[in-house]
């Protein structure tokens, strides 16, 4: 009896892995097919702009708020740590480096997943349930080119821009807390910051933002497109999209940081 229980667990594990690999392959193929329409007529520029508005501009407020608080808390925590070594002057460098290399791209990606990614999945899932995707196909409009592609491109364009805003707001907020509240010397703060940050750090941040943007767009559109066409199916797909996209961002963050940056 215990033997068969073990066998069943093994079977479930195997099935889970096979399904996971299958979904990854399916998603990759779907994304590539959608991206294949980038330079093909009909040109989707107008819909990319519409999606940039919905996803990018729509996420701006939350990015500013999270950026500000991230910078502020980093300054507080960093001051506490650095003060123990008498190196408060390094606060600017610490705050800016953490934000530019790591927290800007990752937290920015999380905010976009929560604000825009879940909306993408839910919207496409609902279009599947209500047969709007089929209606598009019957009207000779390819949903991959019309619905999926603009959203993937929009997240890819929007995330680096949002991360840039996040970085600047975070650094400014860190400066306010560090210099005005905690009394770190303003000159030292700025001087250390400009001295310690190189183009290499900045480029790493941009690469991360671009890759994360692509991941979010690809995963969230895929989850919506392949959602089970029921209301529960869409709800489940939305939850799964947020979880899978967040985990993928963290895994990819580690890979990018360790291999390339």
């Amino acid at each position: 009896m215990t033997g068969s229980g073990l066998v069943r667990i093994l079977g479930a594990l195997g099935r889970f892995c096979i399904q996971g690999v299958h979904a990854m392959g399916d998603g990759a193929v779907l994304t590539m097919r959608a991206l294949g329409h980038t330079l093909r007529r009909p040109w989707q520029g107008r819909h990319v702009v519409l999606q940039l508005h919905a996803l990018g501009v729509g996420s701006l407020a939350i990015i500013v708020v999270t950026g500000a608080f991230t910078g502020m808390v980093l300054a507080l925590q960093g001051y506490y740590t650095l003060a123990k070594f008498g190196s408060e002057s390094l606060l600017g460098a610490g705050v800016a480096l953490s934000i530019i290399r790591e927290l800007g791209p990752v937290l920015g990606a999380f905010m976009v997943i929560g604000r825009a990614g879940s909306a993408i999945t839910a919207e496409i899932g609902i279009m599947r349930v209500t047969e709007q995707l089929d209606a598009l196909r019957m009207m000779a409009v390819n949903p991959l080119a019309r619905i999926l592609l603009p959203r993937i491109l929009a997240t890819m364009i929007a995330l680096p821009l949002l991360v840039a805003v996040f970085d600047v707001v975070g650094i400014a907020a860190g400066y306010l807390v560090g210099v005005d509240l905690l009394g770190v010397n303003a000159g030292a703060y700025v001087a250390e910051m400009t001295a310690k940050i190189s183009n290499h750090d900045l480029n790493g941040g941009w690469v991360k933002a671009l890759v994360f943007g692509f991941l979010i767009g690809a995963i969230c559109t895929f989850m919506g497109y392949r959602a089970e066409p029921t209301t529960e199916g869409v709800a489940r797909a939305t939850t799964r999209a947020v979880v899978v996209a967040s985990v993928s961002v963290l895994v990819m963050d580690y890979i990018l940081t360790s291999f390339f940056l």
């Binding site: 701006l60 800016a96 530019i100 680096p160 821009l161 949002l162 840039a164 805003v165 970085d167 600047v168 910051m193 400009t194 940050i197 190189s198 183009n199 750090d201 900045l202 941009w206």
Partner: peptide, 14 residues
Amino acid sequence: IGLACAGWMAARLG
């Protein structure tokens, strides 16, 4: 706005 932020960082910090 996004490009301005990126440009500011590149010029000021990079």
